[in-house]
Design a protein around this nucleic acid. Sequence first.
DNA 1: AATGAATGAGGTTTCATTCAT
DNA 2: TATGAATGAAACCTCATTCAT
Lengths: 196, 196, 196, 196
Amino acid sequence: MSEQDISVKEKLLNSGKEEFLLHGFKNASLRRICSKAGVTTGALYFFFNNKEDLFCSIVDKPLALYRELIQTSIQKETDDLNTSVENEENIMRFLMTYRDECILILEKSAGTKYESFFTEYKAMLEKVNTDFFERYARRKTNPDLIKIIVGMRLQGYLEIIHGKYSIEEAIKLTKYMACYADAGFSELIRKLNEGN
Amino acid sequence: MSEQDISVKEKLLNSGKEEFLLHGFKNASLRRICSKAGVTTGALYFFFNNKEDLFCSIVDKPLALYRELIQTSIQKETDDLNTSVENEENIMRFLMTYRDECILILEKSAGTKYESFFTEYKAMLEKVNTDFFERYARRKTNPDLIKIIVGMRLQGYLEIIHGKYSIEEAIKLTKYMACYADAGFSELIRKLNEGN
Amino acid sequence: MSEQDISVKEKLLNSGKEEFLLHGFKNASLRRICSKAGVTTGALYFFFNNKEDLFCSIVDKPLALYRELIQTSIQKETDDLNTSVENEENIMRFLMTYRDECILILEKSAGTKYESFFTEYKAMLEKVNTDFFERYARRKTNPDLIKIIVGMRLQGYLEIIHGKYSIEEAIKLTKYMACYADAGFSELIRKLNEGN
Amino acid sequence: MSEQDISVKEKLLNSGKEEFLLHGFKNASLRRICSKAGVTTGALYFFFNNKEDLFCSIVDKPLALYRELIQTSIQKETDDLNTSVENEENIMRFLMTYRDECILILEKSAGTKYESFFTEYKAMLEKVNTDFFERYARRKTNPDLIKIIVGMRLQGYLEIIHGKYSIEEAIKLTKYMACYADAGFSELIRKLNEGN
DNA sequence: AATGAATGAGGTTTCATTCAT
DNA sequence: TATGAATGAAACCTCATTCAT
């Protein structure tokens, strides 16, 4: 598809993505977005209802896909713990495919309906980890510790997403990260049991 | 010091801190800051040159102190590796004492001259870690891995700072986090050497 | 005529009428009109020159008919005073038949060329009433009083038009109103002559 | 007070009143209001929160006074029917004193919180008239007729307010109008009883 | 030391209208 | 006939900043 064949709507989605990534939702300027797309501000409102609608139009589809992926991954992992490596790879493959959109949702969405997605996602992971921990360590968890570990692990993902890696590189790094995290986790359990 | 003795300047610094924490630098409103401080916007410009000057006035002193602390900590740790635990405790003690200011610099400073502080700080830590790694593991590091590990570790700190912990609780959590991170790090080295 | 046979032009006239009634000419939105009619804004400009042309197309024919009716009514009443009851009934029958269009012209036309129609109509009625008064009361009229009485009488019509009455109900109410107005008028003349 | 001593706030209130009277609340332009007052649009927001706040600042005080006046008038008239003439005179005196503000509330307030004031006021008068009617005519009222008569009477007030009369002239006209309305009302009752 | 007033630029959004197809 | 796209002006509003007093 040649340069001139990109529709204005696509141009707006592209320059919107760029602007949102650069400044975040609230500080993004529709004027800049439109002028980057080579149209007047009014034109934007032919394609989108408002600023948030533009943001959501960029982010909605990947997000829906991601929710599906998470759903099935958790299901699979509940049925068979051995799928966890494979699941993590699938997730990372997805995240790398939709790098920009992930960053938008997780770090640039303040002011939109997705602004609490990250927090909710973290809370969910904390719950999953707590359940896992209590099943295998057979002791009460320290919710503060769980929160820290989950936060660190997610940051690991974000570091990889922010890097300019190929998908294969990213997956390799993810595996190293898993190695790091798992060893840390085991040691923590050991120490906590010992301290008991 | 009685309530009425709080000078206008201090009131502005306080309400500024509050507002910047709540909305970030760019989305903070000087109007709100001033009305929270009980003065008009003009008054602010008697004490500060502009919005950024107010931000910096809140953050500058703690930042200078922190830079000193880091300097001496690194020096101490270079001289004697055994001081590392003690150093980390000192740092966390500092961070918890200046929780708000840390959050401002690390997460709310976009639009100010400190907006790249976090990135630079990370880069510095990456360098320190690389040096350490290369000295003890006697092999080339993977800079991408270092970046990830440093990012995760810093996120650990941030998680603790964001929690409403007492200093002693925070230090305890920091130690657990160190345990997690060190074990992970060791395992990573082992694996990398083995893969060699 | 089946549903699907309603031409686009008619759909536009209908949804235009609805919108103008709801928001008045100036605050009406061509977008809403077109979307209610199931076409795009461009289509409107095939049938009408502009917003005002749409308004006039809704209102022009009833207005022309009304002008005829008024003309002949006044003529008839000049020739034979006894036709006045019959004339008033004819007028009310007409107004009820074209309720929406009347309301558009009288109350929703600000911004169009008809915005002063009501004022002019009132002025005309004032003149007619003045002539009548001077012929039968044989004295100078008070133009201010005439203006007030005409305004009130017209408001009476508007109240009836705005009610959700059947034509027969409306005519009945009109007769009561005439009774009220005539008695008031007579008493006023009596009082003015007495005060003489 | 000399021309140059009029504060900007007063200038804004004046040009606002002018603009609202001319175009109604919704179609009034803050730009025009401000440029008529010789300031930029931003200046308006130093004195008023928004467009509606400007409108209300023009209208609030007279409205509060009017509500008091109505309250006491109804009370007085309930206690002693003979006060009605005096009450009506007081009301008209008030309306003429605050001509512009009355017109704003009654005819130009669409889009503000006062947009339904007229309707509510009418409904109240309909109730008062119904009660009065049923007490003196000893028969069920026709609510449609009451509505029409109240609407006409109010229109009478509006006609007077819109004229450029002095207060004394206005009061004189009001008395004539009362004569007209009372005679009409009596005749209507007579006719309705007869038709019984 | 602080107020009160005002600016001017920029924010998002809505609108009637135009025009190539 | 009608669409889909785009314009440009105007709408209300917020902002950091300035300045005379």
